[in-house]
Nucleic acid binder design. Sequence first.
DNA 1: TGAAATGTTGGGGCG
DNA 2: ACGCCCCAACATTTC
Length: 468
Amino acid sequence: MQQTPIIVWLRNDLRLEDNPALFYAAKQMCPVILLYIYSEDDQRPYPIGAAAKWWLHHSLKAFSKSIAEQLILRKGNVLDILLELAEKTKARAIFYNKRYSPHEISHDATYGKELLKKGLEFKAHDGNLLIEPSELLNQQGKPFQVYTPFYTAAMKFFDVKEPLSIPKELQFYSQNLASLSLDALDLLPKTEWTKGIQEAWNPGEEGAEKELSSFCKNNQASYAKDRDIPSVMGTSRLSPHLHFGEISIRKVYAKTWNNESYRRELYFREFAHSLLFHFPETPSKPLHARFLHFPWKKNEIFLQAWKKGLTGYPIVDAGMRELWQTGWMHNRVRMIVGSFLVKHLLISWHEGLKWFWDTLVDADLANNTFGWQWVAGCGADAAPYFRIFNPTLQGEKFDPEGLYVKKYVPELSLVPPKYIHKPWKMEASELKICGVELGKNYPHPIVDHDKARVYALDCFKKLSADSK
DNA sequence: TGAAATGTTGGGGCG
DNA sequence: ACGCCCCAACATTTC
């Protein structure tokens, strides 16, 4: 008779190394069942987007391969599946790593209660953040709302734990358990639009590991300088791997802690998660209530132009097309396109959040919410209302040769650097030589920067005046 | 992790 | 030699 097993229920922690739930389950010297459940109920009310689904498919594939195809896949109601599996295998406990989005916390609490009723242990582990959001508070015992004090306090009061090793010997539960095929989860899109994403990424723990070591070897020294240049692969590109938990944040920290500017970025992730934990309404509501009444425009034409990368501002269009083609956008460009949507087009940040949610492979509720509220000026430590990015100047500053623009906006490939961020300033004859016909194969700017800026300033200024 | 407007300074051209 | 103007270049303020 086999010993009773432990079920390790995997969610956004598809890795072997530094996976506490898995590590401590293995330590019990009993068989383990590695389980992944695809559950639309569990995702509610934030069902994962199309690009993330693609990633999840490949992440699951890679993970299963790394454990000799021993991953049990299921689809449906979480509780039903856990109870059925536990009963069938006489499992005594279910181990998992904590999740931090409000809906996930509440789901896990419900599962825990129900499982306990049936005499099952439902054991939480800490593995996906450097700091538990409930543990880092300011002197008044309240959550930080400004980044710098948050970071300073984190540095002062918290040590980061060493990552756990890969369990030496995993003893898998040996009797046959029903598992769905990966394809049965139906995660891949019907139409083939994932080619660009496929070329850009390598989901899974091994892919994450490679990305990290290449970053450590080639980019870390120049990170502070290169991280703002979108034509250079100067960032770590770990965001989707981190979102799916294919690499542990503690491991990333352990390899990069002496890089001050990168460390600050890692702690922005912590900050975003802490904010979402303490302000669970923020995915749909602005943190600062006065923004509830902001007169956002509903302009479907502008919104579509933005989504498709047809705004007539090259750096914005390049960013939106990079997103569409690769499922990712460079951080600097995210700020530029975000500012453009909310300040030039005066479209609600929520539209931006929804689009990013569906198209980003790294779509993460905490980071996405924080980023959009930041750029709209309605969130924590937000950009002040008058900080309006000039897409031309941002382009000239961070993509001086126009390499990034030309990669994603090929219709401008012959435009000289001087005009690459303002093609509308060229003489008609020059444009013709470059093969550009404004309004035909590349749009005129959909709004005039100067006018849009003045108008936005007026709207935002009224808002601050009203609230006084 | 802004940009534009406004202010100040100093060199050079010029009468 | 000198004052005046122009205008970069940089600094400060404002949105």
